[in-house]
Design a protein around this nucleic acid. Structure first.
Lengths: 107, 107
DNA sequence: AACATGTGTAATATATTTATTACACATGAT
DNA sequence: ATCATGTGTAATAAATATATTACACATGTT
């Protein structure tokens, strides 16, 4: 991660600041999974899982794609996006200067 | 950062997931500062600043010490703790397995 | 004594995040 | 047709995080 945009960095930290989302990352690190199965493994309802997945997706940590199973069902698969961030005070200082989000805007 | 405890990692991400706290880090990166002055530079009230500083301190990102100014006033100085974290899916997977916090406990 | 500056916190209000409930709709198998 | 499985979302409730207000107390200066 080179010079980071402040808002982007903030969205990243917000995405990582939740135990369920870390668990989701943990599960997807092993293998990609479709939503219903992921909900079972993460032990949470699908509506809640969707909410968490959206935050992860907006942060660029996961991505999704629809597929058709052999028996014709629509399956939405999520997979982890490879990442490797180095967090230092200097990086945060550079990023902090470009932060614009104060109150939540349209997301 | 070697193998990371899940709860510790979570507290770290939570501490970083706020624009004001990134700004505080940014200010302290330049030089250590006492609370009232820091409040002015960060453009926030002292009570609010205290709240943010506590989160940063619990995450181990800043530390404080009391000093007496030349004119005898008690001054609480905060300074940045050097850090350099590398965040990868593998690290999160290892950490996620040791996460215990589900609801907020005593802090 | 009143003022300016510093530390520190309790009580409360506001905003946001997290979680649940209740739906709608589709496909293949029984 | 009903059941089991999948996707998707709107409305609401509950829990947390963020922010404000109003204090108390201390020192040195005017």
């Amino acid at each position: 991660m080179s010079k980071q945009d402040g808002d982007t960095l903030l969205v990243l930290f917000e995405a990582l600041a939740n135990p369920h989302r870390l668990k989701i990352i943990s599960i997807l690190f092993v293998e990609r999974q479709y939503v219903s199965q992921l909900a079972r493994e993460a032990e949470m309802s699908r509506p809640l899982l969707y909410m968490h997945l959206q935050k992860l997706e907006k942060a660029g940590l996961v991505k999704s794609e629809m597929e058709l199973s052999t028996d014709g069902k629509a399956m939405k698969y999520y997979e982890l996006v490879a990442f490797d961030f180095t967090i230092t005070p200097a990086l945060i200082k550079d990023a902090a200067e470009t932060i614009t989000i104060k109150k939540k805007e349209g997301k």
